[in-house]
């Protein structure tokens, strides 16, 4: 339980943003499921949890048959609706495109890229390995760490 409370959560302000709508739906569903589980936890018997049946009951024809939405408009009868239909169609096409089989496998691609960039990989070669492996040697990056922030910058942030 303790671990669940500590799970990082996105703030409501972030979730209300327009581009976060999908994540918001997901988070809402998770919270709903959690609540449902908590609500019925003492009614669910061990038998119900442990019996692994291979049957799933689905009472809706629309889901079984994969029916489309029944609200349609053709040839400019209802432009608003047709726009929605187009958007849906486009979304569907994107999904089917992703399902297309790869012509080049990931392994082949990796090999190809390795070959391609082997010659140009002087960047790493030029650095002596000793520098990369030697832990005593401080990487250049850490220098930034010790830089003193400007004072006026700091005060400005505090006010904000």
């Amino acid at each position: 339980m303790y671990a669940k409370h500590n799970k990082p959560k996105l703030s409501r302000g972030v979730l209300d943003m327009k581009f976060m709508q999908r994540t918001k739906a997901k988070v809402d569903k998770e919270a709903d499921d959690e609540q449902g589980r908590a609500l019925y936890s003492n009614e669910i018997s061990g038998n119900m949890l442990n019996s692994n049946s291979n049957f799933i009951i689905e009472p809706s024809y629309s889901i079984c048959e994969g029916l489309i939405d029944g609200r349609l408009s053709f040839r400019g009868m209802n432009p608003e609706l047709e726009r929605l239909m187009e958007l849906e169609q486009a979304e569907k096409q994107v999904k089917t495109k992703q399902e297309q089989p790869k012509e080049v496998s990931d392994v082949e691609m990796a090999k190809y890229m390795q070959r391609k960039f082997n010659g140009k990989n002087d960047f790493n070669k030029r650095k002596p390995n000793a520098i990369l492996n030697n832990k005593a040697f401080k990487p250049k990056k850490q220098k930034h760490h010790f830089m003193k922030p400007r004072e006026d910058d700091d005060s400005g942030e505090a006010e904000a």
Binding site: S62, E65, G66, L67, G70, F74
Partner: peptide, 28 residues
């Protein structure tokens, strides 16, 4: 009939579309 019209490959709504512009709402 409602379900048949809503099947993904049902030719009926497309055939009607060739005749005239229309708007439809089919409930299951």
């Amino acid at each position: 009939l409602g379900r048949m019209l809503l099947r993904e490959n049902c030719p009926a709504l497309g055939a009607l579309n060739e005749e005239l512009p229309y708007e439809i709402a089919v409930g299951v």
